[in-house]
């Protein structure tokens, strides 16, 4: 079994960053001091990812306020809207308000990527909102139909991928909770496929990962299996292994085996058992292990501790198959 490991979303800020960013808001520290701490902490996350043997690096996306903010603040047609609950969590995002058909601002997202990734793009995992989740979670006042918007966002994200490929980035993870929370049907589902075709056309040999979480993935599999992407990830805290459709699967199988909703540590042996069952059922080209949902639902220390489960599971799998 080919096993790959890595983060699937933002990592929590360290306690030092929590203090520093709070102090910044209260005028008790300087932007320069906070910037210095962000840079240091990003390096710590990269070092952790390296130490744990992850296949690529994220640096934690510690500066991003939420998944959409870099886009809502820099792309054309957007305004930053009201505080809105992020799925079924006690965290919130500013809902992007789309006032006109959206347009990319070249270079804007590259400028928001964590600096360690920009310095080493080949080993970076770029985090992007999936076109469907983006379209569902924004407030669309642009006049575009939902399907047209999904497709347009897919094309724009494809253009983003193309630009980033030109800068040397090769791995792109699309965060797509809504594909399983509210699985699209009919023209909206077709628009999702078309959107990812646009991404595929821009990939040029790169890797695309669609990561779903927030609900049982079973109802979405007819669509997920059609997506022209390299890997489809599901959150095993939400999806029973028995609910995965039988393979062989054309894509890699992403398995969210670390649950950020609880500090209760996962048992690597039990997780390895579940991963083997999932692998036997789907028969994918490779298994991609990661947190089921973004780990920033946890504080820094428990998140760090829980991440150690991933290499332990990989070891258990390799020992079991030897």
């Amino acid at each position: 079994m080919i096993v790959r490991t890595g983060l699937t979303g933002a990592f929590p800020r360290s306690e030092a960053l929590v203090t520093a960013t709070r102090d910044l808001d209260r005028g008790r520290t300087s932007a320069e001091a906070v910037e210095e701490l962000f840079a240091k902490t990003e390096e710590e996350v990269v070092a952790l990812e390296h130490r744990l043997g992850f296949d690529d690096r994220t640096a934690g996306y510690l500066r991003w306020s939420d998944l959409f903010r870099p886009f809502a603040e820099t792309w054309e047609g957007f305004a930053v809207g009201p505080l809105t609950r992020w799925l079924e969590t006690n965290t919130f995002y500013r809902q992007p308000i789309l006032l006109a058909p959206p347009g990319r601002t070249p270079g804007a997202i590259a400028a928001r990527l964590p600096p360690p990734l920009v310095r080493s793009p080949k080993t970076a995992r770029v985090l992007l909102p999936g076109p469907y989740s983006f379209s569902v979670m924004l407030d669309n006042r642009s006049g575009e139909t939902e399907s047209a918007l999904i497709h347009r966002l897919g094309r724009l994200l494809g253009d983003e991928v193309k630009e980033l490929r030109g800068r040397g980035f090769a791995t792109f993870l699309f965060s797509e909770p809504q594909l399983v929370v509210q699985p699209p049907e009919g023209p909206r589902a077709e628009a999702v496929v078309a959107g990812y075709r646009a991404v595929e056309a821009a990939l040029n040999g790169g890797t695309s990962i669609v990561w779903t979480y927030g609900a049982d993935a079973r109802p979405a599999f007819p669509l997920l299996d059609r997506l022209p992407v390299s890997v489809v990830g599901v959150d095993l805290a939400e999806t029973e292994v028995d609910h995965l459709p039988a393979g062989p699967s054309r894509t890699g199988l992403g398995l969210g085996v670390v649950d950020p909703r609880t500090t209760l540590p996962e048992d690597p042996v039990e997780v390895a058992r579940v991963v083997r069952a999932a692998h036997a059922r789907r028969r994918p080209s490779a298994v991609w292990l990661g947190p089921g949902a973004p780990l920033d639902l946890l504080p820094w220390e428990p998140a760090t501790r829980k991440l150690h489960v991933l290499p332990a599971v990989a070891r258990a799998l390799s020992e079991g198959s030897a």
């Binding site: 929590p12 929590v18 960013t21 709070r22 306020s65 965290t91 500013r94 500090t263 504080p299 820094w300």
Partner: peptide
């Protein structure tokens, strides 16, 4: 108590298990 979790932007709360 195990550390802070971000609620949004630079707003956090201390979360216990």
């Amino acid at each position: 108590f195990g550390g802070h979790v971000r609620s949004f932007d630079n707003k956090y709360y201390l979360k216990a298990a």
